[in-house]
Design a protein around this nucleic acid. Sequence first.
DNA 1: CCTTAATATTACCGATCAGGAATATTGGGA
DNA 2: TCCCAATATTCCTGATCGGTAATATTAAGG
Lengths: 82, 82
Amino acid sequence: MSAVPRQHKVDSPEELGRRIRAARKAQGLTQVDLAEIAGVGPRFLSELERGKDTVRLGLTIRIARLVGIDLFAIPRGSETRL
Amino acid sequence: MSAVPRQHKVDSPEELGRRIRAARKAQGLTQVDLAEIAGVGPRFLSELERGKDTVRLGLTIRIARLVGIDLFAIPRGSETRL
DNA sequence: CCTTAATATTACCGATCAGGAATATTGGGA
DNA sequence: TCCCAATATTCCTGATCGGTAATATTAAGG
């Protein structure tokens, strides 16, 4: 048994939005639920999940964490070689 | 010889800002240089690197990529077990 | 020290965010 | 199909973004 890490490169707001939506649903949360928990408006969540590229970074990171997504910065070229 | 992957968890704009600044310098670029290349104002770069949490997501991702930083979304709990 | 490039700060401004609330639209189930 | 919850869209508004340009501050060498 081996679990491959689900690492998704995020190179656009769209991509991140998709991930966040999937994660939220996996938690069984509705946009309105999550909005209340996170203290943001439902409109913001809707836009975030659809990949609006001008959403605020801080809010985005908070939402991501809330739905169980951690973000990682990986310098390109730092190949994993153990 | 073994290269450990430089994976930096990013859970705040400050953290990401620090990474971006380090990466920019590693490229030998000045804020003004990078600003021109990226087509943004120097002010934005300054604020981004200092962790302003309301910077725009799209611009942030673009800048990160330009300095050689890829962002990854990893669902918490997806332990890497091969 | 002293100088000078690099970075930060401020002011001004047009553009746009994000909240709230109401309404439309969509999409899955039964 | 029908229906109802979920999501999207629109309007209004105060707050704030980010560009530009000018000025201050910082940092590293020489």
